[in-house]
Simulated scan of single mutants.
Amino acid sequence: MASPSLKSPAGRRLVLDVANSSGLEDWAPDLQKTKVYERILLDLILGELPAGARLDEQSLAAHYDTGLAGVRDALGRLALEGLVIRRARSGTTVAPLDLVELRQGYEARVLIEPHCAQLAAKNASKAEAQAMYDVFADGEEAARTCDLPALVAMDLRFHAAVARASGNLALARILIPLQHKAARFWVFSFNGASEQELLDEIEEHRQVARIIASGDAEGSRRAMLRILDVQPEADARP
């Protein structure tokens, strides 16, 4: 089956789209707590808030120009994802970078995310498939300037869109936090990456969107495995 034509619109504003990707209706994109959550999440992933750092609620409220209630809600959500640790009386700290947890999370993603891509090929609407592709509308510019925040946001939005398009909310709710944790390590791969390497990575993700749009479930599963650096079984045969 031929892939539909997917075109990138110019100038689309990048957001993490956490409300839609998580399926949590009380985290609508226009809510202040959602905006604060997304900003803190991105800073955690980028290392602006480093592992082990103590997070003072009042300082965060001042830094992100918001109220304490929004900060507390955001930290509560991040604690549920395991990205921060909250302890009574001792406060909140950024969770450590745990290599064992990374390996276990990666193993879980290898099992779950290709299946989500497979389901997305069966269940995604045309609009959802287009949305996956549109995530990288500004990909070339981000790669040219090595705009790390933009590239991270694009990657998170893409994988969240695939999870959402699977139509299985239970899987999406498991997968999104795993992706957020993995992104804290993934950013280190940008060190020394050339513009062409970044462009190749973007094209791999766009190809997944094209295959999902075509309705090829098995092809979508294999394409997602390649993004996760796992060689599909059929490709591994001599």
Rank of each mutant, 00 (worst) to 15 (best):
M1D: 13
K7M: 12
S8K: 14
S8A: 15
A10T: 08
G11Q: 10
R12G: 08
R12D: 11
D17S: 11
A19E: 01
A19M: 03
N20G: 13
L24D: 05
E25M: 08
D26C: 00
A28W: 00
K33M: 00
T34M: 02
K35Y: 02
V36R: 00
L41P: 01
L42E: 07
L42H: 06
L46A: 08
P50A: 01
P50G: 04
E57F: 06
E57M: 06
L60S: 15
L60F: 15
A62M: 00
A62W: 02
A62P: 00
Y64W: 12
D65C: 02
G67A: 06
R72N: 11
L75A: 09
L78I: 01
E81R: 12
G82F: 12
G82V: 11
L83T: 03
R86L: 08
T92G: 08
T92H: 11
A95V: 10
P96M: 13
E101W: 10
R103V: 08
R103Q: 14
G105T: 12
V110D: 12
A120S: 11
K122N: 12
N123W: 06
N123V: 13
N123F: 14
A124K: 14
S125H: 11
E128W: 05
Q130E: 15
A131D: 14
A131T: 13
M132C: 06
V135Q: 08
F136Y: 14
D138G: 15
A143G: 04
C146T: 04
L148T: 14
A150K: 11
A150Y: 05
L151E: 09
L151V: 05
V152P: 00
V152N: 00
A153L: 00
M154F: 01
L156C: 07
H159A: 03
A163G: 06
A163R: 01
A165D: 04
G167F: 03
G167D: 02
L171C: 03
I174W: 10
P177G: 06
H180N: 08
A182S: 05
V187Y: 02
S189K: 05
F190I: 08
E195L: 04
E195I: 09
Q196V: 02
Q196L: 13
E197Q: 14
L199K: 13
E201W: 08
I202L: 10
I202P: 07
E204I: 06
H205D: 05
Q207V: 09
Q207E: 07
V208F: 05
A209L: 04
R210P: 02
D216N: 15
S220V: 03
L225C: 01
R226T: 14
I227E: 01
Q231I: 15
P232T: 05
D235N: 13
A236Q: 15
R237P: 02
